[in-house]
């Protein structure tokens, strides 16, 4: 049921696109902060490639939003107040160390894969086309992150200790990925997406539990209740700092062409 003229349809589609776009832009931005700082030169090249994919995907979603009457993509990316951002908290956190960045990416990529697959038959065709293309790229991100996770987990010593700490630090943010801020029923009703948030989380847990086992890592148990929901515009100081940096040049002359 694609009724783009239905007000509510447009509304939830737009909301959902913001969630996806903002997730991607922030994750890509965080990835790019690793430039020149990865543990080896090869890792640097790989992380940068992933960062570009993420920002590319975000750009695609912002363009869809613009086609639906929202602001210019650059203004959405560089000129929006933190309270308007709809990303989950997980992606706005600072990078911390290698294990944190890898595990955060892994958790998000697994979620993203499930979310994208649930949109392969989305009633909004432009989204459906883009999603199919993105799934092909995301396959490699997920492969990359899973490989790292297993290796860090099996290595023992410092690497595994740090990995354990990273998992614990990330755990309270996991639930936030599965929040759709109240539009989930409408997304299903309009067939924009095929799974409920709970179904997505069950799939995520199954995938991750298998991986944890292969990596010799123990499962931390239940996900804590969300304290702040990024999808509702509730964000940390880290996002504000990031947005100040990201918008610094753009904001210096917002009407100029750069």
């Amino acid at each position: 049921m694609n009724n783009i003229n239905d007000l509510r349809y447009r509304e939830v589609l737009i909301e959902c696109l913001y969630q996806m776009a903002d997730d991607k832009l922030l994750l890509g931005h965080r990835d790019s902060e690793w430039l020149g700082c990865c543990p080896d030169i090869e890792g640097d090249v790989a992380f940068s490639s992933i960062a570009q994919d993420e920002v590319g995907h975000a750009t695609f979603y912002y363009q869809l939003l613009h086609q639906l009457g929202e602001d210019d993509p650059d203004r959405l990316a560089f000129g929006r107040d933190a309270s308007k951002w709809r990303n989950c908290m997980l992606v706005e956190r600072e990078n911390d160390d290698w294990t944190y960045s890898i595990t955060r990416h892994l958790f998000f990529d697994q979620f993203d894969q499930i979310r994208l697959q649930a949109m392969c038959t989305s009633s909004y065709e432009p989204l459906q086309h883009g999603v199919k293309k993105m799934i092909r790229e995301e396959y490699y991100h997920l492969l990359h992150m899973k490989t790292w996770f297993k290796q860090l987990g099996r290595a023992g010593g410092v690497a595994t200790q740090k990995l354990q700490q990273a998992i614990e630090k990330l755990w309270p943010d996991v639930n936030g990925m599965f929040s759709f801020a109240g539009i989930e029923e409408d997304l299903l009703r309009f067939e924009l997406i095929q799974l409920t948030p709970t179904e997505m989380r069950v799939k995520w847990e199954a995938e991750m539990k298998a991986l944890f086992q292969q990596a010799n890592m123990s499962w931390p148990g239940e996900f804590p209740q969300l304290k702040h929901d990024g999808r509702k515009g509730e964000h940390s100081a880290a996002l504000k700092t990031l947005l100040l940096t990201m918008g610094e040049v753009y904001q210096s002359e917002p009407s100029a062409k750069w």
């Binding site: 931005h29 790019s32 902060e33 430039l35 940068s48 960062a51 570009q52 920002v55 590319g56 975000a58 750009t59 912002y62 993509p73 650059d74 990316a77 560089f78 940096t245 990201m246 610094e248 040049v249 753009y250 750069w258």
Partner: peptide
């Protein structure tokens, strides 16, 4: 790179 003033510039300078 973190300050590039448009999405296009951001992608280009990252690449």
């Amino acid at each position: 790179v973190p300050r590039a003033p448009s999405l296009r510039r951001k992608l280009a300078i990252m690449a």
